[in-house]
Amino acid sequence: MMTKSARRGLRFGKPALYLFALPATLLFVVFIAYPILWVAGQSLFTRTAEGQMVFAGFANYGAVLSDPAFWIVVRNMVIWGLITIPVQMVIGGLLAYFIERHTYRLRSFFRTMFFLPVVTSVSVISLVWVQIYAPYYGIAQEYLKLFGITMSFSPIGDPATAIYALILVNIWQWTGFSMLMYIAGIANLPSEVLDAARIDGARGFRLAYDVVVPMLAPATKSLLLLGIIGTLQTFPIVHLMTGGGPNRASEVFGTYIFKQSFVLGDTGSGATLSVIVLLVALVLSLVQIVFFGAQLSPAKRKPE
């Protein structure tokens, strides 16, 4: 009943409506839509040897898609998303479950401490982790020695490990966020359902797995969406720690676009990459909306 009347909404004149939408729309048009359109336009031009910009149709797209570097970046992004999103969910979910259901006096303490990496600037975090990973004087090698592993160079300097070393930093930084989303979800679980399940004999692992996990689906969906956004947005941490190297081993869309347009001055190719990422983002958004609905909250919103 409540939701039905909400759906109908209040009717005011058009001018009021547009006035309310105006500031946000203006910001959006000037600082997001216009740059995107500019980039889309640039993707159709190429720079000649004399520095002239000439119309090139879709030539840039052919060039970008046939460049092996592009596919390395795609592979890196897939690895990034496939590891960071589920790992952050699982660790964050476990932390949330144990903190919410088994701690009392220390609850706020744990919630806060695990969230601190999220509020720490990436420009600080990257330098700290470079130091941690450093051979000879970093502490990672000291700890690895305990397991009989000798590290003669930094894991971010080795093409075989660079991306995973960065993924570890990302997981460390963002797991607290997943934890908090699940904490919000758990806090909103109806206690009658949990009590009923416990009376039915579900406890411990079974209670968590059969009852809590399905009921946290809204938080999981939100984290999936935010995880995909975060993956496509991955940039500062890579830019600061490896610059996408060595030899593109940790290159992501952000660093690749930055290099093409800023370092090499190849705006056409940088813009083309941007448009391709935009299209990927559009497809992923639509998939999200079709399968999961338009939602960004840790708990089920509408009472059914």
């Binding site: 997001i32 740059p35 940039f235 941007s274 935009l278």
Partner: peptide, 19 residues
């Protein structure tokens, strides 16, 4: 909503030059 979601996913690196 779709527009907003899409723009949330665009890498900042794409927008920086025009900005």
């Amino acid at each position: 909503y779709a527009t907003l979601l899409t723009t949330l996913m665009v890498p900042l690196a794409s927008l920086v030059l025009p900005l």
